[in-house]
Amino acid sequence: MLVHLRRSLVLAVICLVFFGFVYAFAGTGVAQLLFKNQADGSLTANGSTLIGQNWAATKCPGNPLGSCVFHGRPDDTGPYAANPKTGAAGGDNPLVANGVSGESGATNLGPRSKVLKADTKALVAYWHKLGVNPTPDLVTTSGSGVDPDISPLDATVQIPMVAKATGIAPAKLRTLIASESHGAQLGFLGSSYIDVLQLNEALAKLH
């Protein structure tokens, strides 16, 4: 009994040192040395290419809010949701979930939820007002709440809105979308996608 206890304490301390700290510090060291950009969060001057942003609040002089950029997927607190949960920055801050700033989260609404039905309806109406016929991705929220990607089709349906607000020809936007599309990884893993931040950075260069 006492032998077990003494051995347990010794082994627990060894594990704390080895698997808690040596492992994590060695891992961080190797990661920072070899893949610094990824390990730091894939940052650009305007954010992280892996973290979705609030594009709906972008000011577009002479045009409705958010109409001069491509949008990512909404999150559960969007301004278009039936019950917007936060008021700040137009409400659609992907980095606020469950009322906690900095937390990731999904709506967790079931497939037969009245709330989900109402929220989705509000989202459809929101897109129609902007002149966009939305795809499923644009009216549903992601698993993380910070999904940085949309599909090429999700971007294509936003062309009329962006073309009207920016004055860039639709054909040029189509070329832009094609050049920003990433195919499925290794040709078969997952599906093709566009990183919304990279797309909007490329769009800004067209202005």
Binding site: T140, G143, S191
Partner: peptide, 21 residues
């Protein structure tokens, strides 16, 4: 079902709560 009931019929697959990638 909730997304269909909200008027989106062109859908294949349940996208709610899933990541595009």
């Amino acid at each position: 079902p909730a997304v269909v009931a909200a008027g989106i019929h062109s859908t294949v697959g349940n996208a709610e709560g899933k990541e595009v990638r």
